[in-house]
């Protein structure tokens, strides 16, 4: 993989991957972000499914976490890119990494489909007496996709 080799040979990435502290610090930040971000996703989805936080409106849950989720995604992507490109050759040959990337793409598709019909119409959903099927589908798919994403992230390290 000549491209992967040239990416990970960039001076900055070489020093990063060879540093005793930098790599684990960035990995820890990546995981801290996942813990915080995952918690917010879980809380929002439990509310969408009607399993918890029923005293709070869907609008409150979704809009309150939105700015933090945006920050979380940016930090996760930046740290993730740093971790992946510093060992590009290894990751390029790892099918678990590519599975994770496909899931990341599916999360994007989920956002494209459900943002206009669920996440951007929360006030309408709050007025409804029952939780609509499309809301439950959005929440379940979100939980499945993010759980799969975090699981693949963990499994990457175990592929030889």
């Amino acid at each position: 993989m000549p491209t992967a080799h040239s990416i990970q040979s960039i001076d900055f990435l070489v020093s990063f991957s060879e540093s005793v502290l930098a790599y684990p610090i960035v990995l820890s930040i990546h995981l801290t972000c996942i813990a915080l971000f995952g918690g917010m996703i879980l809380m929002t989805n439990l509310r969408l499914l009607g399993l918890n936080f029923m005293g709070l409106t869907i609008t409150e849950m979704v809009t309150s976490f939105r700015p933090w989720k945006r920050v979380g995604v940016i930090v996760m992507i930046v740290t993730g890119l740093l971790l992946a490109t510093s060992e590009a050759e290894k990751y390029a040959l790892n099918p678990i990494f590519w599975t994770k990337m496909v899931i990341l793409g599916l999360i994007g598709v989920h956002a494209l489909i459900f943002r206009p019909i669920v996440y951007k119409r929360t006030e309408e959903l709050d007025r409804s007496a029952v939780i609509l099927t499309k809301v439950k589908i959005a929440a379940i798919l979100s939980l499945v996709l993010w759980t799969a994403m975090f699981t693949m992230g963990r499994l990457i390290a175990y592929w030889d």
């Binding site: 790599y23 684990p24 995981l31 813990a35």
Partner: peptide, 15 residues
């Protein structure tokens, strides 16, 4: 405290 637990977990594998 909780973030230090995450860092501790990762550093256990590295150092």
């Amino acid at each position: 405290l909780w973030v230090s637990v995450v860092f501790g977990g990762i550093f256990t594998g590295f150092l």
